[in-house]
Computed example of a mutant assay.
Amino acid sequence: MMKRLIILLEVLSLIFLIVPGGMAQKKLSALVSFSTSSIEFVVDNLSKEYTGYVDVSITTDSTDWEAYCQLDMIGIPGDRILLAQGINPTSSSFIPLTKAAGITRKMNNKNIFLSRINIKYIPSYLDIPGRYEGKLVFGYKTTINGKESLVQLGQLPVSIDIKPIFSVTIWSESEMSRKEIQNGPIGISFRVPKPGEWCSLEKICLTIVTNYSNWNLQCGATDLIDKELNRFIPVNSLYIIVGNSSNCMQFSNAPISILSGQSPGEIGVTLRFKLNVTESILAGEYSGNIKLLFGGM
Rank of each mutant, 00 (worst) to 15 (best):
P77E: 03
G187R: 12
Q155M: 12
N111R: 03
V151R: 02
I281A: 09
A84S: 14
S189D: 13
L217C: 04
P164Q: 04
G243I: 10
I186G: 01
P123H: 05
V54H: 07
G21P: 12
M297D: 15
R4H: 07
G196F: 01
L28H: 10
F16W: 07
N118V: 05
L5E: 13
V151C: 11
L5W: 06
W198V: 05
G78S: 15
E202Y: 12
R131M: 09
Y68C: 08
I128Q: 09
V209Q: 14
I103Y: 05
L282H: 09
V42H: 09
T270I: 10
A101R: 07
T143P: 05
I233W: 10
I165Y: 15
L271R: 11
T36M: 00
W65V: 00
G184S: 11
Y286A: 04
K48Y: 07
V11F: 02
K163Q: 07
P77L: 01
K163L: 08
K147S: 09
G296W: 02
K179F: 07
R131S: 07
G288M: 01
E66S: 02
S93N: 05
V32D: 01
L293D: 06
A221G: 08
L238G: 12
W198S: 05
A24H: 09
S149F: 11
E148M: 13
L12W: 02
A30G: 01
